[in-house]
Simulated scan of single mutants.
Amino acid sequence: MLNRRHLLTASLAGSALAAWPLRGSAQALEKPKLTLAVGGKNLLYYLPLTIAETQGFFKDEGLDVTIADFAGGSRALQALVGGSADVVSGAFEHTINMQVKGQRLRAFVLQGRAPQIVLGVNPKTMPNFKSVADLRGKKIGVTAPGSSTNIVANFVLAKAGIKPNEVSIIGVGAGPGAVAAMRAGQIDAMSNLDPVITLLLRSGDLKVVSDTRIVAEADKVFGGPMPAACLYTQQSFIERNPATAQALANAIVRADRWIQRAGASDIIKAVPESYLLGDRAVYVDAFLAAKGALSPDGMIPEAGGETARRALASIDPEIAAAKIDLAAIYTNDFVKRANAKYPKG
């Protein structure tokens, strides 16, 4: 019953989106003032969001966006479900998790084509680390429990035969707190993102185990393209506010394209000083490491939904048993229009 309802909804929504005019942003915006939730805005994972904000792309589209920053993606998701946010800049896989729970969420523009999440161990507390199996019984820091960093950690651990209840998951955020927890030996391993990862690598406080900043490695780890950061929202929001969704997609696509053309100095000038964690060289290195994993055009890969479903199913029996309607968790309709309107960014 649930799956049939999703199929019907996806069909109706697809028809509605297909009928929307090509120049969607030229239409009156239904909700020009909105709140967008994100978990760790300073992360390279969400760089397109920051660029869309600082370069005025949201304003160009007639949008007044308030960005609410949380400790992790799971908290941003809670804001959407709780009604305090209209849209989330978050991990693609949440759309699958929430479909199983009866929540109809849909991604509509991509920011990252690989997770950019790095799992690494603490050389201080695990000097004799040899394999992932050594992490059984250890404390692993993630941005927030239930976030994509937690999911990727679980996935890598599962490949080594370690169940989620055989480690201690600790939320450490995505900034200085995460760095401090690692250096103080409060955690034995970490699943986090740049610039935190690059900062710890440069100071010798992290040993990489799995690095999905590299697209080829991410594809190998997950067995296919794994969509990462995206804008997603309630299906009902898209149905009620198609011009607003189009405007958001336009802004992010322009940001995606801007980043691909940008050099390190352009990025340094475009992001807030606080993002640099006190070291511009570290941020430059982090950007160069992450750039290839950022989406060049906002398009969600057709095989991405199944890759994400398969990864989640391998660690979550409920998802493994569910019939996921992949057509209902994303749409590229808005992105196609955005690329037609802004072919050069």
Rank of each mutant, 00 (worst) to 15 (best):
I214M: 12
L193A: 07
G73M: 12
G40I: 13
Q103S: 00
D297A: 09
R75T: 03
L7T: 09
K101W: 00
K323Y: 01
L36W: 06
D86K: 10
G161C: 08
A85I: 06
H94L: 09
A178Q: 04
V81P: 01
I214C: 07
T9L: 15
S25R: 13
G298N: 12
K59P: 01
F57K: 00
G14C: 15
V335W: 02
S203C: 10
Y46E: 02
A264Q: 13
M98C: 00
P296V: 11
K31P: 03
K124D: 08
V209W: 07
A144V: 09
A328F: 04
A91G: 07
S89I: 03
S295Q: 07
G73N: 08
L231E: 03
R113K: 12
A133S: 05
T50W: 00
P296K: 10
K341W: 07
I319P: 03
A180Q: 15
V65D: 06
L47W: 03
L77K: 04
L206S: 01
A16R: 15
D134N: 03
L12F: 00
G171A: 15
N154A: 15
D205F: 10
A153T: 11
I169Q: 09
V152C: 01
R4S: 15
D279S: 13
K139M: 02
A303S: 12
A26V: 04
T212R: 06
A153R: 09
Q246M: 11
E166V: 14
Q55Y: 11
G72E: 04
A308M: 06
A327T: 08
A13K: 11
K33D: 07
F57I: 02
E318T: 00
A13P: 00
Y283K: 10
L49S: 02
L201T: 04
G120M: 08
A340S: 05
S15I: 14
V65N: 08
K291R: 14
F155A: 13
V215R: 06
V196C: 09
T212G: 08
N154S: 15
V38R: 03
K101I: 00
T143D: 01
W258H: 04
D279C: 11
A262C: 03
A133T: 04
A181V: 03
G102H: 05
L44K: 01
T9C: 13
S295I: 07
M126N: 04
Y330G: 03
V209D: 06
Q116Y: 01
Q103Y: 03
V167Y: 09
T35R: 15
Y275K: 14
P48T: 05
A320M: 08
Q186S: 06
F334H: 08
P21N: 10
A245Y: 09
G224R: 07
F155E: 13
H6D: 12
A229F: 10
D205G: 06
L288M: 13
G298T: 07
V271P: 02
V81G: 00
Q103H: 02
E318Y: 00
V156G: 05
F222E: 11
D219C: 05
D279I: 06
I96R: 11
G173K: 06
A281I: 02
W258R: 05
P317A: 12
I329V: 14
Y283R: 07
Q260I: 01
S74V: 07
